[in-house]
């Protein structure tokens, strides 16, 4: 029994390692609109293009789902891109930091994702292109028990088809 548990542990560790690598491979866009890499090397209209040249995420205050002016201008950039590539569908992921209870944070993440969705729709993006999902505090982007990490985790991430996960 114990031995069996251990084998699962090992398996899980493998999986975790594997996924962590995936993260480093794909989850490049940490800030809003990080465009450090040369835009020319990225094929327009792809998820990579979106992450690098537009910026895939907006951030929220603690226990809030209202959009700051930074978040709104970020979403405006996203909307422009989405209009340009009108066939791309997207998923809006809502996330929360670890300073809340699990169930409430699921609801809060859903609220944040919808807050971003509503704004995109108001800017003319068709609602049927947008799928919403909340991960609550289950999928942090940054590790750390401090406000800097928590701020990065209170987010709504726009995933366009072909883009890597958050």
């Amino acid at each position: 029994m114990r031995i069996k548990s251990l084998s699962y542990l090992v398996a899980a560790l493998f999986l975790a390692t594997a996924c962590a690598e995936t993260m480093q491979d794909g989850g490049a866009g940490r800030g809003s609109g990080g465009n450090q890499q040369a835009a020319s090397s990225v094929k327009p209209g792809t998820g990579r293009d979106f992450v690098i040249n537009v910026g895939d995420r907006v951030f929220f205050e603690f226990d809030k789902s209202s959009l700051s002016s930074d978040a709104r201008s970020q979403l405006e950039k996203q909307a422009a891109w989405l209009k340009k590539f009108g066939s791309v569908s997207l998923t809006l992921e809502g996330h929360a930091d670890e300073r809340g209870t699990r169930e409430y944070n699921l609801a809060l993440g859903e609220r944040r994702a919808n807050s971003a969705k509503d704004f995109l729709v108001a800017l003319g993006i068709a609602p049927n292109r947008i799928r919403v999902i909340s991960y609550g505090k289950e999928r942090p982007a940054a590790l750390g028990q401090n406000e800097a990490a928590w701020r990065q985790n209170r987010r709504a991430v726009t995933i366009v088809a072909g883009a890597s996960g958050s």
């Binding site: 029994m1 699962y8 398996a11 560790l13 999986l15 975790a16 996924c19 993260m23 289950e138 590790l143």
Partner: peptide, 30 residues
């Protein structure tokens, strides 16, 4: 198990004293 960034979570069951431990799901879904 695993990093907080991509935590693997499985349903598990055990006696109240921690014995007779079993997993009910395989961790492929959160």
């Amino acid at each position: 198990t695993g990093s907080q960034i991509r935590r693997i979570k499985r349903l598990a069951i055990m006696d109240q004293d921690g014995e007779n431990h079993h997993f009910l799901t395989d961790g492929s879904s959160l």
